[in-house]
């Protein structure tokens, strides 16, 4: 019979083990992606960063996909940030409690729609609409991808910014109101500046989501491995890292698979760095108002 005390310590150890599993998983992801990516890195070296992708000439430059990922994400943020901030201000500062109780879950539902459904709708409805309106070559375009990703990034931006603004102590807002400021002046000059690192962290997470989004982009970006011409042309087709992997994995073999794993490492690294930055910013907000814990 183990004593109660020893049992308690064993329990502690068990939970530590379970918690440490996340660290193990992260390391495994990196290690196993790297093992699969290594042959490509070994063969092509910096050629992987080039702009030419041509299977028959054995050129595998990932630059167009990297550029595409960033381009699409920036466009998506241009749609999502203004709308998302407005909606977050409404939810946290203006909406009556009852409206908030309904809208917040609704926005969470928006986040719950599977990305393949977004992609399907985006391609069939939005793609066709844009095609008819702008007379492009086909239904796929950066513009469609930006709009769809913008809508997909909205919930995360709204909900994280809402949390950040809700975390600003009420006393602070009351103090501003008591000095004769209107509620809007208080929001603009007290709440938003106080919550700015949380809001930034929301925007970064939204960007990470947009860069990492796969299925929706894959169906509407066109998956053509080239840069848009000219580089800011939202009506052109292109590719992103995610779409490249998703489309090519099923159809390729040999060294191309290794190249795709290299793309996966790039994606993982970019998004991991963004998560860490966002996390640091968020901790800063919490510490500002709750003191160090």
């Amino acid at each position: 019979m183990v004593s109660r005390r020893v049992k308690d310590k064993l329990v502690h150890l068990t939970f530590f083990g379970i918690a440490a599993l996340s660290v193990v998983i992260i390391s495994f992801i990196f290690i196993f992606l790297f093992i699969r990516a290594y042959p490509a890195i070994d063969t092509f070296g910096t050629g992987l960063l080039g702009s030419e992708w041509n299977v028959s000439r054995n050129k595998f430059g990932l630059l167009p996909a990297m550029y595409g990922s960033v381009f699409v994400a920036v466009g998506a943020l241009a749609v999502a940030v203004p709308l998302g901030l407005g909606a977050a201000i409404y939810l946290s500062e203006i909406a009556p409690e009852r409206v908030r109780m309904i809208l917040k879950p609704l926005i969470e539902l928006l986040a719950g729609i599977p990305s393949i459904v977004y992609g399907f709708i985006g391609a069939i409805l939005l793609g066709r609409y844009l095609y008819d309106t702008f007379g492009m070559r086909g239904v796929n375009s950066f513009l469609a991808a930006m709009l769809v990703l913008g809508i997909m990034a909205l919930p995360i931006i709204v909900s994280m910014s809402d949390d950040a603004m809700k975390a600003v102590p009420k006393d602070l807002k009351d103090a501003s109101l008591a000095l004769g400021a209107t509620r809007w002046q208080t929001i603009r000059k007290v709440t938003i500046p106080a919550a700015i690192s949380g809001i930034t962290s929301a925007v970064i997470m939204g960007m990470g989501r947009a860069i990492g989004e796969t299925m929706a982009v894959m169906l509407i970006i066109g998956s053509v491995m080239k840069m848009p011409v000219p580089f800011f042309n939202v009506f052109d087709t292109g590719n992103t890292l995610t779409a490249l992997i998703a489309v090519q994995m099923g159809e390729s073999h040999g060294i191309i698979i290794n190249v795709l794993f290299t793309a996966g490492i790039m994606l993982f690294t970019i998004v991991a760095v963004m998560s860490v930055i966002s996390d640091i910013l968020q901790t800063r907000t919490t510490e500002k108002f709750e003191g160090k814990r």
Binding site: I26, I29, G212, E213, F261, G264, L267, V271, A272, S275
Partner: peptide, 16 residues
């Protein structure tokens, strides 16, 4: 690690 895991794109999970 938990935060990074949360942000990890689903396609990367697929690759792994």
């Amino acid at each position: 690690a938990v935060n990074i895991l949360q942000g990890t794109p689903s396609i990367v999970h697929g690759l792994f």
